[in-house]
Nucleic acid binder design. Structure first.
Length: 485
RNA sequence: GGCUCCUUGGUCAAGUGGUUAAGACACCGCCCUUUCACGGCGGCUACAGGGGUUCGAAUCCCCUAGGAGUCACCA
C-alpha cells in the first residue's frame, strides 16, 4: 500500500513554527516511504478565514522546500483539495449516518443551546448536548429538513461503553463514551465541521497516515466511531506534541511569536530553520547517526522514523536556533555569503565607500543572524559616541595615558603611509610600538578604540583602518586625542 | 472540574532491567590572539516525589504532585 500523508492547515494566517514542524514530519514520512504528500486546505469556517492566507501557505511550503504531490494549486486525482469546494460531498455521508442511527438531525437553535449550556454550567456543572433532538421521529425530522427548517447533524455517541483508537506513538487511547459530546458534523450553513470533514476527506483521499498535533488526541476516539459507522478502516494515527514558547505556553502568533517567514525576514537561513525544527521533538537513531546533528533535507528524509518522535512538548529554544544559523552561515560558500550579506551591509553603509568583499571576509564567521549585521557594521559609517573608559583594558595594559600616547604616535605615522593597505598599517604600528618600548596591544587597542568607538568589533585595528580609509582614520584619531587630552 | 496525555540538567535530548546516566545549545574557566568572533581544551548542572515488583530500576506497576490538550454550528 502506498503511503499517503497530508498536511491540512486552515487558512487563518501565516504558517507558524508548530505547523511548519508538523508539515515537515508529514512530508518526511511520505518521502521516506516513497509515498505521496498532499496539501489540503481546511476552510470550512468561513468566518475565520483570512484573505490571502491560502497563498501564504503555498508560499511558505515552497520556501521551506516542502513540495506536495497533490494540492489545490498543483492538482491531483483526489481533488478538489479545498474543503469549501467539496461542500456537496459531505451531506450524503451524513445522511447515511442518520439512516443507520450513528447521527441525527438537530433543530435546536444556537440561542437555545447557549441558554441551556449557561444554565447547566452556572453551578459549576458539566454540559453536554442533551440529545434533545434524538427523540424526534426520523420521518418527522426528514420532513422538517425538507421544509427548509434550519438544522445541523450531530454524531450520535453511544451512552455507554468506550471509544478508542491506536496511535503509532501514544499507543492505545480510549475514552468513556459518556464523557463524549454529540458533536455537530454538518453545520447549519451546510459545511462540515472539522470533526466530520477530516474523516470523510482522509478516507476519500486515501490518506494512510494521519499526522497531526496532539490537540486532536482526545477527539480521535470519536472519529473512529465514525469510521466504524461508515464501514471504513481508520488510518494509522500519529499525533505529535506541540512546540512551546515556554513550559506552559504554546508557541503562537497571537503572542507575537515569529512565524517561518518572519524568521526568514530576520535573517535566518532556511536550512538552519528546517534542521533546527526537525530536531525539536524528534531525534535520529543514534545507532545509525551517532552524534550527527547537521542534516540536509535529503538526509532528514533518509533518517526520519517514527521511533525518534518525542511524546512530550518541546520548548522552542532561540539560542540553539541561533547557533544552527551561525553554523550554517559559516559553512556557506564565501560568494554566497557575500551575496546574502550585501543587502544587510547596505542598510547601514549605503553610499559609503566600503570594500564589501573585505568586510564580508571579516563578518563571515561573526554573523549569527543577518538581521544583526547592520548594527554590527554601522560604526564604519559613523563613529559612535563612546566613553573613554573603554580605552582601559587590563590585559592589553592600556589606560587613558598610554592610549593618548599611542594615538599621538600613531597619528603622524599613519598620515605618512603612502599605500594605505592593511599590511602597511600593521607594519607601521607594530614597528612604532616596538620603537617606543610599548607592547603591540598598547598600540593596537587604543587605535582600534579610536577608529571604531567600540569595545569589540569585527576585525582588529588594521582591518578597520583599511575599511574606513586613511582620511576617516586620521579624523577619528584626532577626535580620540581630543577626548583623551 | 470531567476526560485524555505527558514528566531525564536552564533548553533540545540519548537511554527501552545491570551505563562512571551520552551528546548538543547556553553558561563558566583556560589556551590561541591587536578586541570580538572562529578554533582547541576543560568544568558546572538531570532521572518530579513516594511506595512497590526485582538479586538489580531512569527503564515495569500503583499513588501523589506538576504541566499540557480537550470539553464550540474553531480547526
Amino acid at each position: 500500500m502506498t503511503v499517503r500523508t497530508r498536511f491540512a492547515p486552515s487558512p487563518t494566517g501565516y504558517l507558524h513554527l508548530g505547523g511548519l514542524r508538523t508539515a515537515l514530519y508529514t512530508y518526511l514520512y511520505a518521502r521516506k516511504n516513497g509515498g505521496k504528500f498532499i496539501l489540503r486546505i481546511e476552510d470550512t469556517d468561513q468566518e475565520r478565514e483570512v484573505p490571502g492566507a491560502v497563498e501564504k501557505i503555498y508560499n511558505s511550503m515552497r520556501l521551506a522546500g516542502l513540495e506536495y504531490d497533490e494540492g489545490p494549486d498543483v492538482g491531483g486525482d483526489y481533488g478538489p483539495y479545498i474543503q469549501s469546494q467539496r461542500k456537496d460531498t459531505y451531506l450524503p455521508f451524513a445522511m447515511q449516518l442518520v439512516e443507520s442511527g450513528a447521527a441525527y438531525p438537530c433543530f435546536c437553535s444556537k440561542e437555545e443551546l447557549d441558554e441551556r449550556r449557561a444554565a447547566a454550567t452556572a453551578d459549576g456543572g458539566q454540559w453536554k448536548y442533551d440529545k434533545h433532538c434524538l427523540s424526534i421521529p426520523k420521518e418527522e425530522a426528514l420532513r422538517r429538513m425538507q421544509n427548509g427548517e434550519p438544522f445541523v447533524i450531530r454524531q450520535n455517541i453511544p451512552t455507554t461503553g468506550t471509544a478508542s483508537f491506536e496511535d503509532a506513538l501514544y499507543g492505545h487511547v480510549e475514552a468513556p463514551c459518556d464523557t463524549l459530546d454529540d458533536n455537530v458534523l454538518i453545520k447549519q450553513d451546510g459545511l462540515p465541521t472539522y470533526n466530520f470533514a477530516n474523516v470523510i476527506d482522509d478516507h476519500l483521499m486515501g490518506i494512510t497516515h494521519v499526522m497531526r498535533g496532539t490537540e486532536y488526541l482526545s477527539s480521535t476516539p470519536k472519529y473512529n466511531l465514525l469510521y466504524e459507522a461508515l464501514g471504513w478502516t481508520p488510518p494509522t494515527y500519529i499525533h505529535m506534541s506541540p512546540v512551546m514558547k515556554d513550559s506552559t505556553r504554546k508557541l503562537s502568533k497571537r503572542h507575537g511569536d515569529p512565524g517561518f517567514e518572519d524568521l526568514l525576514a530576520q535573517g535566518y537561513v532556511k536550512d538552519a530553520i528546517i534542521n533546527f525544527i526537525a530536531l525539536l521533538g524528534w531525534c535520529p537513531d543514534v545507532k545509525k547517526y551517532g552524534e550527527k546533528e547537521f542534516f540536509t533535507m535529503d538526509e532528514l528524509i533518509e533518517a526520519f522514523d517514527l521511533n525518534g518522535l518525542s511524546k512530550s512538548p518541546a520548548i522552542f529554544n532561540t539560542e540553539k536556533l541561533n547557533w544552527f544559523n551561525h553554523e550554517y552561515i559559516m559553512k556557506m560558500d564565501f560568494e554566497d555569503y557575500l551575496a546574502m550579506a550585501t543587502p544587510w551591509f547596505d542598510k547601514a553603509l549605503a553610499g559609503k565607500n566600503i570594500d564589501y568583499r573585505r568586510l564580508a571576509e571579516l563578518m563571515h564567521t561573526r554573523t549569527e543572524i543577518f538581521g544583526n549585521v547592520p548594527e554590527q557594521v554601522k560604526f564604519l559609517a559613523e563613529l559612535p559616541e563612546y566613553d573613554i573608559d573603554i580605552y582601559t583594558h587590563k590585559k592589553m595594559k592600556t589606560n587613558p595615558e598610554v592610549s593618548l600616547k599611542a594615538l599621538q604616535l600613531a597619528r603622524p605615522a599613519i598620515a605618512a603611509i603612502e599605500n594605505f593597505t592593511e599590511d602597511n598599517v600593521k607594519e607601521v604600528l607594530m614597528n612604532l610600538a616596538a620603537a617606543n618600548d610599548m607592547k603591540t596591544g598598547q598600540m593596537m587597542w587604543p587605535v582600534r578604540i579610536a577608529i571604531s568607538g567600540l569595545a569589540s568589533t569585527p576585525g582588529g585595528a588594521t582591518e578597520i583602518a583599511y575599511l574606513i580609509g586613511k582620511e576617516e582614520c586620521l579624523r577619528r584619531i584626532d577626535l580620540g586625542i581630543e577626548k583623551l587630552s
